[in-house]
Write a protein that binds this DNA or RNA. Sequence first.
DNA 1: GCTTTGTGTTACATTCAGTTACAAACTTTT
DNA 2: AAAAGTTTGTAACTGAATGTAACACAAAGC
Lengths: 251, 251
Amino acid sequence: MGMNDVADTPAGHLLVVDDDREIRGLLKRYFTREGYRVSTAANGVEMEQIVSNWKIDLIVLDLMLPGRDGLSLCRELRKSTHVPIVMLTVMGEEDDRIRGFEGGADDYIAKPFNPRELLARIRAVLRRTRMVAPTAERAHGRVLCFGDWRLDLGMRRLTSSDGTLVDLSTAEFDLLTAFAEHPQQVLSRDQLLDLARGKLEIPFDRKIDMQVSRLRHKIEEDPKNPTLIHTVRGGGYMLTAEVLIDEKPAA
Amino acid sequence: MGMNDVADTPAGHLLVVDDDREIRGLLKRYFTREGYRVSTAANGVEMEQIVSNWKIDLIVLDLMLPGRDGLSLCRELRKSTHVPIVMLTVMGEEDDRIRGFEGGADDYIAKPFNPRELLARIRAVLRRTRMVAPTAERAHGRVLCFGDWRLDLGMRRLTSSDGTLVDLSTAEFDLLTAFAEHPQQVLSRDQLLDLARGKLEIPFDRKIDMQVSRLRHKIEEDPKNPTLIHTVRGGGYMLTAEVLIDEKPAA
DNA sequence: GCTTTGTGTTACATTCAGTTACAAACTTTT
DNA sequence: AAAAGTTTGTAACTGAATGTAACACAAAGC
């Protein structure tokens, strides 16, 4: 899991700027495991050096830095580049939050933080800034066919090949869509959460399990022995079927 | 999954840079046995010579070198090439770890190290930097046939030639897939772990033995006298059967 | 033969996923 | 706006898959 998760392509190159060595180490390890390439810097000078040498996709910036504070750095970066920034601040300082956003940060999170949450926010920011809004992709009356099913993304309906309409809840539909758009690929719970919701969420670890279970009961012949959504222990879930794209809406 | 770490094509060309002759020898022997091509260098000058003459896939670089230290070498290499680098450092120097990463190393390991762990990390780095999706490759409705068995990689199912479906766990399936994709080849436990899991793992030495045992009980006629998965004492295991690839899914 | 090393296996521990049952949030109806 | 229904979230329980240890035995070396 994190799978690592998905060893695909590195998900992006992050830069962590914090003077606390432990935090740098922690984040580095965590994000690396999650498939990101990670560089770190302890202060503004190091940061600038790295930023000028690499194509950075996102910066995690601590508000409190020796010498130059994070806020002014953030403001300045904003002028020169378009690299999205996520701010880190100490707990409870409501003020900082506001100031962080004013400085042009794309998101903000307070220490002590949950790495999972930070990761979720980072994904969300990357998604926003890369403008691959999950909803935009799927918005085109496309119909995805797999197994016996036709999943109409425009109508947001699932029909069986014999024409029966199956009633899916929003969450179920989104989840199934996530699977259908990434067939034959192991998707971690984090990824699914991310793909299905498309917005920041601090999940109960097993939301997805539950959702998968519910979905299985609706689309699998025998939910106990699923043939469509396969579970990969320690990894996540995978839609095993081949998916065909049909541009015309279901009859 | 690396289709490339097969005996005929070397899994990659590694360069070990360390002034300690013993370490060079050890790593050279170990990695060569694991299917890698290995060059060694004792200092920065030798290293540069080799790097400019060969296509190197990964460099194992000691932090402590005579003359020029590894860290500055690492930083410099980073600017000129994209060769991934794994740093070696003496135990316990947290500082070094951080500096190693900041210098642009892709991974880091402390001496005295477990060669097995180093190998695992090297594989992980190669996988990351080559951007090969472990699952994506195998995802093509391919069916591998051997002995009486049909292993459907898309469906993730194992069926007997008479149509009986055998229930394999995820780990068992992955292991069998590893065998089927490298038939008639002795695979070390490390290789199997890597092929089957595709992610960094520092294993209990006998995970694989256990898994093989369990697998045998499911697919061998007489598990005590296996005909498919053969044990190579001191080496690992080997699938003796010939494997045919069938593009069509099982009926 | 006896020792050493490596493998097979049994038996148990641990981790992880599936599910039930209920609580909380959200919608719709009245 | 209260009530009823629906969907989603959480916890706790259960069983299955996998990891670990320990022991038995076989092969290789002496």
